[in-house]
């Protein structure tokens, strides 16, 4: 697979914020707005309202990042390495039944959709030129980040 969309750069703003937000699931927001008791809390949310799940592996020579990103066009995934932080962003539309289905009623829509942004900190220096990303049909984005050899 090609790795053309892996670039360096980006502003790197709010990474901190995003990382911290990872802990809280959106289901939390389902709690009724019982504000008087101070129990609930309205998250502040940027445009990217969700984050795909990520696995990070380390071998002797490389790091392997696997992102759960089913149903995407390869072109609409952005991968940026900003210092040691790998940022995966993009937007995913919700999956639709075929056009022929006609009018639809929405009962459930639990699959994350819309713009997303996910950052992963890579523990050590990696060889930027050797990074490869592949997006297979299985729906996982694989990114291999070889460690710098010296």
């Amino acid at each position: 697979m090609r790795s053309t969309f892996v670039r360096r750069g980006g502003t790197g703003r709010r990474l901190e914020l995003v990382r911290r937000h990872r802990g809280g699931t959106q289901i939390d927001s389902l709690t009724p707005p019982g504000r008087a008791s101070g129990a609930g809390f309205y998250r502040y949310c940027p445009v990217e309202s969700w984050q795909p799940a990520v696995n990070l592996y380390e071998s002797k020579t490389s790091y392997f990042v696997c992102v759960d990103l089913a149903g995407m066009d390869r072109e609409s995934i952005d991968v940026v390495l900003n210092d040691n932080v790998l940022v995966i962003s993009g937007a995913r539309d919700h999956p639709r039944p075929p056009e022929s289905a006609g009018h639809l009623s929405i009962h459930l829509m639990e699959i994350d959709q819309g713009p997303f942004c996910r950052s992963v900190e890579i523990p050590t220096e990696v060889d930027l030129s050797a990074i490869r990303a592949t997006y297979a049909s299985g729906g996982f984005l694989w990114i291999e980040l070889p460690k710098t050899t010296d």
């Binding site: 959106q26 927001s29 389902l30 949310c45 309202s49 969700w50 929405i106 009962h107 459930l108 829509m109 639990e110 994350d112 959709q113 819309g114």
Partner: peptide, 17 residues
């Protein structure tokens, strides 16, 4: 509309941004 959930009482709950 971010998500649509179903509540136990058959009502829906939507998550809005």
């Amino acid at each position: 509309i971010l998500k649509v959930f179903r509540l136990p009482d058959s009502n829906q709950s939507i998550l809005l941004h």
